[in-house]
């Protein structure tokens, strides 16, 4: 934040400091006023009563609903991120392959799965697995598969732009010592690109975690659905959903902080560009040119992380 001040403002003089202080007080009053209005309105509708909040803080609420729900969320997210990394490495390497057919096919796969809404994929796989009686947990599998296909495609783009962002000398050096193109990619470019990608990967984990909540729509018992089942039984959905949202916010905020720290930590340790992604999904340009230094990951990544 402080770096931005220097971009936009001079060090304020006495008059400007007074104005800023005044603005600060007015701003704080407006923000607090809005917050107070919301709280007052909630109180007027009886939403702050302990009858509604109390059940949320019982042992049973956590033992039987929130914790098992969170376990399911983490389980789906864990399998999905590992699968997505594998998928991303395969198709990312595919997009860098020598053969034009492989490049083209990988490109079509990646662009396709990035354009289709994850929810549509989840519903499709859920019904497909259900109708064909595959697996005992069609909802879990559908969540994982859909998340792998989408996030794997995003990671494939990260791999491609990560390799593209390496200095050219790296691959030239590999070729110069007699490695083939594939060997150079495997032993020189990918390892460095992967290290450089780590922060973006952690950011992608935030996307995966958030998207597991879509599983609620196909009856996967994740955190949101658990909160909803519990809330429906007690007529306090506002309260239980707030708790579920808070759990997500804390975890994702922690992950984002890890991503920022990683990107600072790693920036001196690799020749690739390290940046945390924006956490919305498509961090790279869709009709992508192989990422130059000015590509969108770097652009949307939090500037304080660079």
């Amino acid at each position: 934040m402080s770096s931005q001040h220097s971009v936009l403002f001079d060090a304020p003089g006495p008059r400007a400091r007074r104005r800023i202080a005044l603005g600060n007080v007015v701003g704080a009053l407006v923000v607090l006023g809005i917050a107070a209005l919301v709280v007052a309105e909630l109180a007027r509708k009886g939403q702050l009563s302990w009858d509604l909040w109390g059940p949320v803080f019982t042992a049973s609420a956590w033992q039987d609903y929130f914790i098992p729900g969170l376990q399911n969320t983490l389980r789906a997210a864990g399998f999905a991120i590992v699968g997505a990394v594998v998928f991303g490495l395969v198709f990312g390497a595919g997009r860098l392959a020598r053969s034009r057919t492989v490049r083209w096919a990988s490109g079509v796969v990646v662009e396709f799965f990035r354009a289709v809404p994850v929810l549509l994929m989840m519903i499709f796989f859920w019904l497909l697995l259900g109708f064909n009686r595959i697996g005992t947990e069609p909802a879990f599998l559908a969540v994982v598969i859909a998340l792998i296909l989408y996030n794997g495609s995003v990671i494939a783009e990260l791999v491609r732009s990560g390799v593209g962002n390496l200095p050219k000398g790296q691959s030239e050096a590999g070729l110069a010592v007699g490695l083939t193109g594939g060997q150079t990619l495997r032993s020189i470019q990918l390892p460095q690109a992967l290290i450089a990608m780590l922060p973006a990967l952690v950011s992608q984990l935030v996307v995966v975690l958030k998207d597991t909540a879509l599983g609620q729509i196909i009856t996967y018992d994740e955190l949101l659905r658990a909160a909803q089942i519990f809330g429906n039984g007690n007529g306090n959905n506002l309260q239980t959903l707030t708790i579920a949202a808070l759990v997500f916010i804390v975890i994702n905020w922690a992950l984002t902080s890890v991503a920022r720290w990683l990107s600072r930590y790693l920036s001196g340790r690799t020749s690739g560009a390290t940046a945390a992604g924006p956490g919305i999904g498509n961090p790279t340009v869709v009709a992508g040119k192989p990422g130059g230094p000015g590509n969108a990951i770097a652009a949307t990544g939090d500037p304080s992380a660079m």
């Binding site: 909540a213 306090n236 984002t256």
Partner: peptide, 21 residues
């Protein structure tokens, strides 16, 4: 940014429409 959109949407229906009327 850290809240799943699905929670926000569910919140719109269950909390804002249903519970806050």
């Amino acid at each position: 940014r850290n809240t799943p959109l699905t929670i926000i949407m569910t919140f719109m229906f269950l909390a804002v429409w249903t519970q806050l009327q």
